[in-house]
Design a protein around this nucleic acid. Sequence first.
DNA 1: GCAAGGTC
Length: 892
Amino acid sequence: MKNVLMVAEKPSLAASLAAILSNGRCTAKRERFAGNNGCSTHEWTGHFRNEGAVHFRMTSVCGHVMSLDFTSKYQSWDKVDPVELFSCPTEKKECSPKQQMRAFLAHEARGCDYLVLWLDCDKEGENICYEVMDAVQHVIHNVYSHQVTYRAHFSAITDKDIKGAMESLGHPNENEAKSVDARQELDLRIGCAFTRFQTKFFQGRYGDLDSSLISYGPCQTPTLGFCVKRHDDIETFKPETFWYLQLTAGQPEVTLEWARGRVFKKDIAIMLLNRVKEHKEATVESVSSKESFKSKPQALNTVELMRICSSGLGIGPFQAMQVAERLYTQGYISYPRTETNQYPENFDLHAVLRVLQPSSEFGDEARAIASDFQTPRKGKDAGDHPPITPMKLASRNDFDRDTWRVYDFICRHFMGTVSRDLKYRTTTAKLRVGLESFSCTANVLLDAGFTKVMTWQAFGKDEPAPPFVQGSQVAINEVRLAESQTGPPDYLTEAELITLMEQHGIGTDASIPVHINNICQRNYVRIESGRKLIPTTLGIVLVHGYQKIDPELVLPTMRSEVERMLTLIAKGSADFNDVRRHATKIFKLKFMFFVQNITSMDMLFESSFSPLAESGKAHSRCGKCRRYMKYIQTKPARLYCSHCDENYTLPNGNVKVYREFKCPLDDFGLLAFSTGVKGRSYPFCPYCYNHPPFRDMPKFGGCNTCTHPTCPHSLNTLGISTCVECETGVLVLDSTLSPSWKLGCNRCDVIINCFKGATKISVEGKQCSIVSWFLLNLLTPSLSMHTETKCNDCGAQLVNVVYKSDKSKFKDGSEEKTGCIFCSVEFSHLVEKHRAVASRQVRSNAPRGGPNAAAAGGPGGGSAAGAGAGRGGRHGGRPPKDKMAQLAAYFV
DNA sequence: GCAAGGTC
């Protein structure tokens, strides 16, 4: 007699299948395998295809036999650069070596001529088919042949379906199996590369970041993303004020609802109020009533069980599934992991009710429902397992509290599915006051239906019917305007999260609780009362960091994109290796980009976790929220606005608040940068510094490069002349260190200290509109009123210098003079030139037409230091270009 | 120490 080995995905299924196929005449094999993996074997004799009588041996695996991992060389976190994980070799290892599943399968396969695979009918099941074939290939001859190995396709664990499957055996689908191989490989490479890199990068960097593992995963990260998205929605919510009319009428008094609901404009609300106030009575336009229904529930599947355990019982999905698993293994409920929420056609619903009838807890309800049995609703048959139903009666004392509550829920839910719908009557009265409509409704219960047993969904109290008669007039007692505000959304509940994950295909019914559990255990979210998910600082910073670097990394659509590619493999329309290589390449590029830009995320981390951030002083104000930002000195120096969660890079050097000045463009508080009195200095706006407002303003530029036409700190207002040394720069008056005044080139290191101790210096002929400035200075330079603002000799802008009367440095002792910094004799002893100290070197080999060191060459020029010192006279070499031409270049 | 998917 020939032998046939049959393998199911789990022990329970092997038992059910054996019982069905053998018509209950199978025997359990006594012998226990060494690994004691919990997989028993059932044997019987029957007919198989054309072989006549054969000996059947039905056993099972426990889910996957193999799992994918990197080869041992790549297990080291220290020696392997995570980027290598995208290309390094992988190998399949036994899932749990202790179980010795492969050896067990090979042992059971001994002497077998045929193999029939009864794995679950999904892609994972198809993949396990190949794991089983691989395990027995040395035992069953020609196991990959279609004449040896068969695949059973079944959609429900019922007599009809299972026997039907046995009659129409097919073959395992290699493409579907391969698509799972590809998923495993991608998940492994992507997840481990990002996790190792992130963990190592942030490890030990921040004292108060107590997370030893900062993981990334294509399912867990979007799951976290949902929670942070809601957090952000709450944080950025802007309440809106609205108004509504509150009207009471009749005797007994009834409060009516306004048909307009809310009005967001107060003046309109007041106008409507006044119109209503013109009337003393309301007209009852109609009083109508109708019957409404609340549907009974669909049969219970895993996701719904998890949702209700979370929202109704306060039991998280992870724990709920542990409890359900225990109830299942003890025989109290059917298999708890199923997507199906429709009972199979021949499912004996009455038998289940009979099981429940003796209960002291809900026996009365079970009996009542049995005598008034209703056909259950239709749902989805996913072809996996029947819905979750009670199998055996239990009493409260059999379990601990939570186990009982889950069991009690499953029983009551089952009874609910074969109960009547809830029925109620709604009576609505519609009233009119002038042109405004009002209404009042009352609901009255007609039939409690399924809520008799699902008591937590019970209908509220009956409401008194509106005491109005159609066509009558009702006295208005009071009408007033009420004011209220829209409120922010609440944090995401676990039940909502489960729904979102299900909708976006993040995880499966079996893995959803694992992902939620993961993001809790990794300290990315906390579960607060009402099972709401509140993201932690770490969770928020991670998601915001991904959003800064590569938002796709946290988008739920990323998973579905990958799934879409994998489906192509499963359908046979794309080559396994092509898809695998393509997806790996994309994610490797994403990974490398992430590594390159990790500082963007690090800035958020440092702002949130560094002890320095905590001691960071309140600095200047953010232009967006007007709150003080924190000054973080550690490199890269920056300002952090914790409210807006934004960082603004700062120049390296001293950065101080520049009095009360604000940038006219964005309202950010201005800052003064300097490297000391003899170094470079300029005012700057932290926002413009990072996001230049004009096309001609370079990134990381100060106000001395800003072409704002009227701002008192801009290049336009304070520019004096083309630089005496470099080709492109402009010397700009710097008042940030006053009474130490200076001109500084906005491109190179040239600095001209001047007029020490002066109380005020202003540049002549400025503070006009950009248009008039342009026209008058550039296009019609001959106009006399403006030639007065420029030096006739060198074209530099004239300056007006004011000293206090007793501190005048002018030789004639006068308080105020206007002149040219370079050419006016009265100024020459007050002007010195040198190069910025401790700053970058100017290229000495740069071809220059001879510096125009006017100040240095002038009488009493003082300590002229640097490359330009003492070279050339005032008008030697290149004459200064017309400053207006120079500045005009900025507008091109 | 990493992912996600099965199952206990």
